[in-house]
């Protein structure tokens, strides 16, 4: 009871810190366990009780290609995510530019309307999209996923770029314009360098959303165009115990996105909250 106020504060701080660590470890545990399991043999993976200490093996990683044709699916994921993201940026940046710098009475309405298209539940249009894709012979094609991902991410990307552009002082653009810059020069020479950081995090957010999307990819692809989300879903069949292999594939599939996410977490908040939280 002879603690000074300072000591008391310090003790409290240590206690709170400890609690935070416990919560973080609990929430992170499934990921840690997945990575750990990926280095086990199938027998160790299924052992009861679960093994924390075991002889690690690279088995699951070394044979990943021949067992599950991993690179086929990974390449699909890369191709689909990057194409959709670039296409989306190409359409969204000009729109965000004009809304941020030439704001009219209708701009806010337009933005809110764009947001409202995100409210359209995918199941509401599952049947038409499926039949359209089938009609055009695009079932199980990368093209159909690229188009859909572009469209479903468009509102978020427009909003995110818009909030970044909004923070740029108009004076800079006006100065460039007075110096005789054309619209294209103004965008490429002035706007892009200033907003590089914002555009990069928008790019990352869009990549993450495409990479992890699992409604359309499960429903519209089977093998040819299937991305990693679909490969992993194929491990859900009840027969056979392939936990270690599943863990290895999952670890590889999630690692790049996890790293992207760690790098850009602050900007992602801003993007996902439509600029409402900075």
């Amino acid at each position: 009871m002879n603690l000074t106020l300072k000591q008391h504060r310090r003790l409290q701080s240590v206690g709170l810190g400890l609690l935070a660590w416990v919560i973080a470890l609990v929430l992170f545990f499934p990921i840690f366990w997945m990575v750990l399991t990926s280095f086990k043999t199938e027998i160790d993976a299924f052992a009861t009780p679960p093994q924390f200490i075991f002889t690690p093996t690279l088995e699951n990683y070394l044979h990943i290609q021949e067992r599950s044709d991993y690179f086929h699916f990974a390449w699909n994921s890369v191709l689909i995510s990057f194409s959709a993201t670039l296409l989306c940026m190409l359409i969204a940046v000009p729109a965000a530019y004009s809304m941020a710098f030439y704001e009219t009475k209708r701009t806010k309405q337009t933005l809110l309307w764009m947001l409202s298209t995100k409210m359209l539940p995918p199941v509401g249009v599952l049947m038409p999209i499926y039949l359209l894709a089938k009609g055009f012979g695009l079932l199980d094609s990368k093209l159909v996923l690229i188009v859909i991902y572009t469209l479903i991410n468009l509102p978020i990307v427009v909003w995110m770029v818009y909030t970044y552009f909004k923070d740029i002082p108009r004076d800079i653009l006006e100065a460039a314009r007075l110096d005789g810059a054309t619209l294209l020069q103004e965008m490429v020479r002035v706007l892009l360098p200033i907003s590089k950081g914002g555009l990069a995090s928008t790019l990352l957010l869009s990549l993450i959303l495409c990479w992890n999307e699992a409604f359309w990819s499960l429903n519209l692809t089977s093998s040819n165009a299937a991305p990693l989300t679909a490969l992993i879903a194929s491990y859900s069949s009840p027969e056979g115990l392939f936990w270690a292999k599943l863990s290895a594939v999952s670890t590889l599939a999630c690692a790049p996105i996890l790293i992207f996410g760690w790098i850009s977490q602050k900007q992602l908040v801003r993007g996902l909250s439509f600029g409402a939280v900075k």
Binding site: F28, W33, L228, W262
Partner: peptide, 17 residues
């Protein structure tokens, strides 16, 4: 970083894990 991580995991991976 630990707390944020689950958000970046694919839904199919999270569910199967």
């Amino acid at each position: 970083v630990l707390l944020i991580s689950p958000f970046f995991i694919m839904p199919t991976v999270g569910a199967l894990i």
